[in-house]
Design a protein around this nucleic acid. Structure first.
Length: 662
RNA sequence: GGCGGGAUAGCUCAGUUGGCUAGAGCACACGGUUCAUACCCGUGGUGUCAAGGGUUCAAAUCCCUUUCCCGCUACCA
């Protein structure tokens, strides 16, 4: 028996902090279409997806909801899984990072790396630069000061474990250079190289003590494994990897041995850095081969501007499926997503796409073909071999299709691959016009030609439907059932005429895709939107009142420390944007009789015009510094929320410029 | 600020190593057809290929300058 080539594909694991919207769902569908295609090509496929369930955010959210975090993630993980199922994704393995075998292996991996010195325990004392919010190893400090800003680093309370990245940097750079296909799309490769690898990597903090909801570091109480080692390891623990070499077996088979390294990690472009730098280095440290390819796919965005839960305009897969059906949604997300740029999704765009491509071109073709076969030939199209030159073009297109589709799929150009398949159906419609079966049907002497024409059509449709399977499996099934046909292999398609001559098609063709009335769709969407915003507004109002923030405590200071700082009220008398900077505003601030120039990173929250006239709190004796080349002689004080939103501090009653703040 | 990528028909984009009247899909308009889900087929563009300059027999394609967008990253007192 011929040994099948293996193909191991993973998606990123979805974070269980909430219901996944269509963008997350897209990744699962994209992955599914790729693996289904590989299976058709005869690969032995392993497709793994799952959920990432630890972390502070979940700890907080579950506490807010008043439930145990495990219960919380059980619910959401279940919901995610059910959406993946709804979308017909054919995963072989759905891993959860709270699975026991995963947790155990993560602990072992952590310990192994620690023992061999790739993970070391670091301390924040003397290494934490508060303003930079960065941790440094002593070797990174310049004269004991922050290598970034040159200021004193603060002693900090938390100790943590670090992964030595620098040790493997050169090896990784070499790997990326010698494997041009490693990072896809290639433009992302430069970003990783120029921004991280070439300047040199800082060691990565891989543990936390600030929250509990994580995998404990088993040799050091109080520490939990931070997201990287926990989440990324899923790609190997899901195959039964064991650091000791005693890999878990599934049905007596060592899946890790069989499937690793992964052929493709499919991820969102936002997490490329973790998958192309941290993960390969972890694997090098574990002395394991690197994945062959990492594809950071673009995103599906909604074009009606800000997508927000409170506005209720978030598009969810299950809502879409209710209106359009699974395959239409699969088709849309796969077709609308180009290779490198973000795609756009909206209710009316889907409706349009479904109408023109699926209802008109494909659905109507199948319908009219079956109707004619019934009407003129009692449902049986035989290949009578009455060939005319016009047939040739159709045959050529159909038989050439598999190679074209394979080429596109190999390059991960899924959208283009679908277009190739659709071209078959478009050609079929044209063929009907060229051959005019309704004319042939009126002439008894043309009956054999008519039969041949319809046979050719059915043959082409069966080929097209077979090629469609990776993208729209249910539709393929429906078409084949109606035509009473077997799915064709790619090789069969290359030979025109493998559909069994004389097969009877169904009496009553079923509508494959309903035409959508755009107004109708929009009305339904608005209904869904209304429900969403009611659900969320109640939720949000509660939150607004209850929301509090906890931040990491800094070391205690003395009163003398405090007295070193001088705060005064200043009046902003002029303000302009700092050109060539995205966030900076440059203000002239009158403090008493003196005017200081102060640069602040608040352009996103205040316009230059609205700054003028405000009385604000200023730290005046801060050492001047240059920001984006502009001198700044102090600091405007702001409150900052946990999303980075800023609000200027202003005196509650009118105060003169220069008034001391104490 | 650093690095990278863009700017082509109303919309979404193709345009390979420079080569003949610059393309596709959608939308729109008109014509044809009737087997079919008011469907399908055909026809229809004066687009300064962002602007300016250069190289060349020849530039959307190569080089320089400018403007504007986007991504990553840094800064954000």
């Amino acid at each position: 028996m011929k040994e099948k080539k293996k193909f191991y594909l993973t998606t990123a694991i979805a974070y269980t902090s909430g219901k996944p919207h269509i963008g997350n769902t897209y990744e699962a569908v994209l992955a599914d279409s790729i693996v289904r295609f590989k299976r058709q090509q005869g690969y032995d496929v392993r497709f793994q997806t799952g959920t990432d369930e630890h972390g502070q955010k979940i700890e907080i959210k579950s506490a807010e909801a008043g439930v145990d975090p495990k219960k919380f993630v059980d619910d959401i993980s279940g919901e995610i899984k059910s959406i993946w199922d709804l979308m017909n994704t054919s995963y072989d393995k759905f891993i959860r990072t709270t699975d026991k075998y995963h947790e155990k292996q993560v602990q072992k991996i952590f310990k192994k790396l620690y023992k061999q010195g790739d993970i070391y325990k670091g301390f924040y004392e003397g290494m934490y630069c508060t303003p930079c919010e960065s941790f440094f190893t002593s070797s990174q400090l310049v004269d004991g000061k922050c290598p970034d800003c040159g200021r004193e680093c603060q002693p900090a309370k938390e100790e943590a474990y670090f992964l030595k990245l620098s040790k493997y940097t050169d090896k990784l750079i070499k790997h990326i250079k010698t494997h041009p296909e490693f990072i896809q799309p290639e433009s992302r490769k430069n970003e990783m190289m120029n921004n991280f690898l070439l300047p040199g990597l800082q060691d990565l903090c891989v543990s936390r003590t600030s929250f509990k909801w994580g995998i404990p570091v088993d040799f050091d109480e109080g520490h939990v494994v931070y997201v990287w080692i926990d989440a990324l390891s899923n790609y190997i623990t899901g195959l039964g990897y064991d650091t000791d070499g005693n890999n878990a077996l599934e049905n007596g088979e060592d899946l890790f041995e069989k499937y690793w390294p992964a052929d493709l990690h499919l991820i969102g472009k936002d997490i490329l850095r973790f998958h192309t730098i941290y993960w390969p280095i972890m694997l090098m440290a574990l002395d394991l081969p690197l994945p062959k390819q990492i594809f950071g796919h673009p995103w599906l965005l909604q074009n009606d501007g800000k997508m927000s839960k409170s506005k209720g305009n978030v598009i969810y897969a299950d809502d879409l499926v209710k209106i359009f059906g699974v395959d239409a949604v699969r088709y849309f997300v796969l077709h609308e997503m180009p290779f490198e740029n973000d795609g756009v999704i909206s209710w009316d765009l889907i409706a349009e796409r479904v109408n023109s491509d699926l209802a008109n071109t494909l659905g109507n073709l199948v319908n009219r073909t079956i109707s004619m076969t019934n009407k003129y030939l009692d449902g049986v199209a035989e290949n009578k071999g009455v060939i005319e030159p016009v047939d040739e073009e159709l045959k050529t297109l159909v038989t050439a299709a598999p190679e074209k589709v394979i080429t596109k799929m190999d390059a991960l150009r899924v959208s283009d691959a679908i277009s190739e398949v659709l071209a078959i159906f478009k050609r079929c419609n044209k063929y009907i016009d060229e051959t005019e079966p309704w004319v042939l049907g009126k002439d008894e002497s043309k009956k054999d030609r008519l039969s041949t024409v319809l046979y050719n059509l059915i043959e082409s449709i069966v080929s097209g439907a077979s090629l469609l399977e990776a993208f729209m499996p249910e539709t393929t099934e429906k078409i084949l059932t109606q035509l009473n046909a077997q799915k064709k292999s790619f090789d069969d398609i290359k030979t025109f005429g493998t559909y069994m001559s004389g097969t009877k098609v169904t009496d009553k063709p079923e509508i494959l895709f309903m035409r959508q009335d755009i107004k109708d769709v929009i009305a339904k969407a608005e209904e869904i939107t209304a429900v969403q915003s009611v659900e969320n507004s109640t939720e949000d109002t509660v939150k607004e009142y209850e929301e509090v923030m906890d931040i990491e405590p800094k070391a205690e200071i003395t009163f003398e420390d405090f007295e070193k700082m001088q705060f005064q009220i200043g009046e902003i008398i002029a303000c302009e944007e700092v050109k060539k900077s995205r966030k900076l505003l440059c203000s002239k601030v009158k403090i008493g009789s003196e005017v200081k120039q102060i640069v602040s990173g608040i352009k996103q929250y205040y316009t230059a015009e609205e700054m003028v006239g405000k009385k604000v709190m200023v730290l005046v004796n801060l050492k001047p510094a240059k920001l984006a080349g502009v001198l700044s002689e102090g600091m405007l004080l702001c409150a900052e929320d946990n999303k980075g939103g800023l609000a200027l501090m202003t005196p509650e009653k009118s105060m003169p410029s220069g008034a001391v703040v104490c």
